[in-house]
Amino acid sequence: MKITLPVDKKSKDANISSNLGRAPYFLFYDTETEEYNFMDNSAASSQGGAGIKAAQNILDNGAEAIIAPRCGQNAANVFMTAEIKIYKNISNSISENIAALKEGKLTPLDDIHPGFHQHGGRQ
């Protein structure tokens, strides 16, 4: 299964970003091959609709699940339609969250906020 995490740099010791749509990078991790693939988030600099564009990028890259601290309503709608699961992270560490997901210890994210829409939350 391919999972996505919003991260603040392109390395395994990166922290999980607090903002999904405007996170600088995404980690795509494959639970079977244990492969790490870091990508720039082209939505980060969007004038508007960053969450939607980020969601499009995430689903285009074949993610089946997301681990994030929170998610905006528009992006959540896209993930719901695409049947992509969103889990709440347990810490800022990539490895701890991946381990928790594999052990089935992550809970679904219920902190779906109405979006910042350029009124904060930028990094």
Partner: peptide, 23 residues
Amino acid sequence: CVDFCRFNALVYVIDKLIVFNEI
């Protein structure tokens, strides 16, 4: 259309084009 929209009001999910009217 998805790539053109600078406000990201369009998204293509699986086999459907979705419009975010308010954006």
